[in-house]
Design a protein around this nucleic acid. Sequence first.
DNA 1: AAAAGGACCTGGTGGC
DNA 2: TGCCACCAGGTCCTTT
Length: 272
Amino acid sequence: MPELPEVETTRRGIVKPLKQQTFTQVIIRQPQLRWPIPANLPELLIGSQLLDIKRRAKYLLLATKPGTLIIHLGMSGHLRILSPDTPLKKHDHVDFIFNDELCLRYNDPRRFGAILWTEHAIFEHPLLNKLGPEPLDPNFNAEYLHAICQNKKIPIKVVLMDAHVVVGVGNIYANEALFLASILPSACANQLTHNNCEKLVTAVKLVLEKAIKAGGTTLKDFMGTTGKPGYFRHALQVYNREHQACFRCKHLIQKSIIAQRSTYFCTYCQSA
DNA sequence: AAAAGGACCTGGTGGC
DNA sequence: TGCCACCAGGTCCTTT
């Protein structure tokens, strides 16, 4: 679920009800996520006010006076806001309770996510200090991408998905952006022209902005509606469409594996 | 240093 | 119905 648009949608959904609220209880049922949840998290948080919720890449950053709570949703995680007495579902690993009346509940079946704590400057944290620019930031532009690509002899899709190059471009949007830019995912990065990079940067921004705007469906899901989102599905041009007709040219969408990830493309539309 | 592959974990699906 | 292989929205770590 958590591509960048969904993480941003989650952030927007929880910041309003929770900002300025005070942590009154922290319940850890399953501490073993990607890394162990700090056992002293309850004592660190209880009594503190949640000052703000920011996002960097796919990390949610919950700022308090003594430090920052870092939450990553991994491959399968999500956050919901509920009444604290809501019956538990499978994989409800952590509850953060505010003012004894609102519960932020973390659920993550595969446990690839993370809940961490730091008291230092947040952007110096080892997980954050080597990240590339945000995709929607002006620093992510054709000049930057083209320069990076010069010394990369790997498929452009792998470059796009490398968080040291640019954050937040997951498998779905890498496929979609490359289709929009008419560039084959397998194209060797150092073969791309400046013009290719221009189109690709534009496509990444467009696809992510559109998906964030479509985040309403996710928000609804996140607010407690049952059932899976399917939020951006209708807009997908290539992802998960193997053997189906390309919407643009009617040739069949093909699938291959690049860096162990499913990759979808139209050889007719994506010639670069 | 760059590139490739493995690792972490559960659930759903499709084949036999 | 059961069992099994394989796939899934991420990303760090180890090996080549």
